Simulated scan of single mutants.
Amino acid sequence: MIATSRDGHVAVVELQREDRRNALDLALCTAVHEAADTAVADGARVIVVTGKGSAFCSGADLGGVYGPDFLQGLYGMLRRLTQLPVPLIAAVNGPAIGAGTQLAMACDLRVADETAKFAVPTARNGLAVDAWTIRTLSELAGAGRARRLMLAAESLDRDEALACGLADRPGTVADAIAWAHEIAEFAPLALAHNKLVLNGSSADDEAIGRSFADVWASDDVQEAALARTERRAPVFRGA
C-alpha cells in the first residue's frame, strides 16, 4: 500500500495503490500517518511524499468516503503532517485531485512535474472539505483561483499552479529528493520553528515562544558561528 525508503536524512513515502491511482482509503491514510511518524522518530530531517505510477493521488476512494472513520483518518493524517517538526515535500508526479490536492497542501513544499494537475471538485460530487483546506488553498493559490476551484470546480495545470504559488518548483520526483537533501543540511531546530510559525495560530503562542528560545539556546547556533570563523559549511545536529 505504501513503500518507504531512506537516503541519509531524507525519507521517501510512496503511495502504492496504482490500480486505484493512489486513491486514499482509511487504510492508506493510516499508513501514511504512521510512515511519516516513523520517519521522524528514526531521524529523518525531510520527508518526500509521492505516488507510484502516473498519479500522485486521485482523491478519496469514493467507495468509502461517506463514513466517519474515513473522515477521521483523512483529517487526522493531514493535520499530523502539518504538525510534524520536519519539512515535507510533495513530489506531485501526476493528478492530485480532491484529497490528493489536500495531501499536497499538507506538505510544506510542492514540486510538480509536467503532468501535475490540482482540483478539489466537491461541487461535482456533493461532498465537502474542511475550512482548513479552503483557507489554505486561498493562501497558497490566491483567492481568485481558490474560488475557481471551489465554486466552478475548475482545475489548475502545472504551469498555472507554479504561476500562482500552489506549486513551488517544476520537476520530477528525483528533483524533489535532491531539494530535500539540500534542505536536510539546514538547522533542524530552526526549520521546526519556522514550520511551527507558518502553520500555527495565535493559540500556539506559548509553543512558538518555547521553540524560539530553544533555537537560540541550541548548540547549532554555536556551530554556525564557529563555521563562519573557520570558513566552512556548518554541520547541524538539531541540538
Rank of each mutant, 00 (worst) to 15 (best):
T133I: 04
D214K: 10
L88M: 13
R231E: 13
C107D: 09
L62V: 14
D37P: 00
V46A: 00
E230V: 06
D113M: 00
A167S: 10
A153T: 13
A128K: 08
D25C: 06
I134G: 00
P170K: 01
G59H: 05
A141F: 12
E185G: 15
P85K: 02
A112M: 03
A152S: 12
A35Q: 05
A161N: 14
I183N: 09
V65T: 06
A27L: 11
S202K: 14
V40C: 13
A39E: 07
S201K: 06
R145S: 03
R135C: 08
A96S: 11
G165P: 14
T133M: 03
M77F: 07
R231T: 14
K52Y: 03
P85G: 02
T122Q: 09
L196S: 06
A176Q: 12
S138H: 09
R80I: 02
L226A: 11
P95C: 06
F212T: 12
G63A: 12
E14W: 01
A153Q: 12
M105V: 03
A187K: 05
Q72K: 07
T4V: 15
R158T: 15
C29I: 03
A184Q: 06
D108V: 02
A60P: 13
C107K: 07
Q102A: 14
A44M: 10
D37M: 04
A96R: 11
P68N: 01
A90H: 09
D157H: 09
R169Q: 09
V235Y: 02
T82G: 00
R148Q: 12
V120S: 02
I208T: 08
P68E: 04
L156E: 14
L78I: 05
R17H: 05
W132D: 11
V12T: 14
D219W: 01
A227D: 15
G171A: 07
A184S: 09
T101I: 05
E223W: 05
D219S: 08
M77G: 10
G8D: 07
A174D: 15
Q83I: 07
A123R: 01
K195I: 14
D61L: 02
A90V: 09
A23N: 04
A190F: 08
Q83E: 13
S201M: 10
A213R: 14
G100C: 10
A123C: 01
Q83P: 13
V92W: 12
A11K: 05
A192W: 12
A192N: 12
T172L: 02
K195Q: 11
A39K: 01
L24R: 09
A176R: 14
S138M: 10
F186K: 00
G200P: 15
R124N: 00
